[in-house]
Amino acid sequence: MDERWLQVLGLVLIIEALLPFISPRSYRQAVQQIANTPDKALRAIALVILVVGAVLVMLSHH
C-alpha cells in the first residue's frame, strides 16, 4: 500500500474521531439527528460530499 494512502487513511480516522472525543454528547445528538433524516436527504448530502471530495482530490494533483 502506498504510503500516501496510509497518511490519508490516518487523517480520515483522526478527523472522524475528533468530535466524539471532544464532545461525546454533541456527537451522540448529531448521530441521532442523522438517524432521523430521510434516506433521500442523506443520499443528497452524501453526493455533495463525494463531489466536493473528488474535486479536492483532483485539484491536489495539479
Rank of each mutant, 00 (worst) to 15 (best):
Tyr27Ile: 05
Ala41Val: 15
Gly10Asn: 06
Leu18Ile: 15
Leu18Ser: 10
Thr37Arg: 03
Ser26Ile: 09
Val31Cys: 07
Leu19Glu: 05
Ala17Pro: 00
Ile15Thr: 09
Ser23Asn: 11
Val52Glu: 01
Val12Gln: 04
Asp2Cys: 11
Leu50Asp: 03
Asn36Tyr: 03
Val57Arg: 14
Pro20Trp: 13
Met58Ser: 09
Leu47Phe: 08
Trp5Lys: 14
Phe21Thr: 12
Leu13Thr: 13
Ala54Phe: 12
Thr37Gln: 03
Phe21Gly: 03
Gly53Val: 03
Leu56Val: 07
Gln29Trp: 05
Pro20Tyr: 12
Pro38Met: 09
Ala41His: 13
Ala35Gln: 11
Gln32Tyr: 00
Ile34Phe: 03
Val8Pro: 00
Val48Ala: 11
Ile14Phe: 08
Leu50His: 06
Leu11Ala: 06
Ala46Gln: 08
His61Gln: 12
Val52Pro: 00
Ile34Val: 12
Arg25Val: 12
Leu18Met: 12
Leu11Arg: 04
Val51Met: 10
Ile49Met: 10
His62Gln: 10
Val31Ser: 07
Ala41Cys: 05
Arg4Gly: 02
Ala46Trp: 05
Met58Asp: 03
Ala44Thr: 05
Met58Glu: 04
Leu9Phe: 14
Leu6Arg: 15
Gln32Ser: 08
Ile34Ala: 14
Leu18Gln: 09
Asp39Gly: 09
Val48Gly: 07
Ser23Lys: 08
Ala30Phe: 01
Ala44Ile: 02
Leu47Val: 04
Val52Lys: 02
Pro24Gln: 13
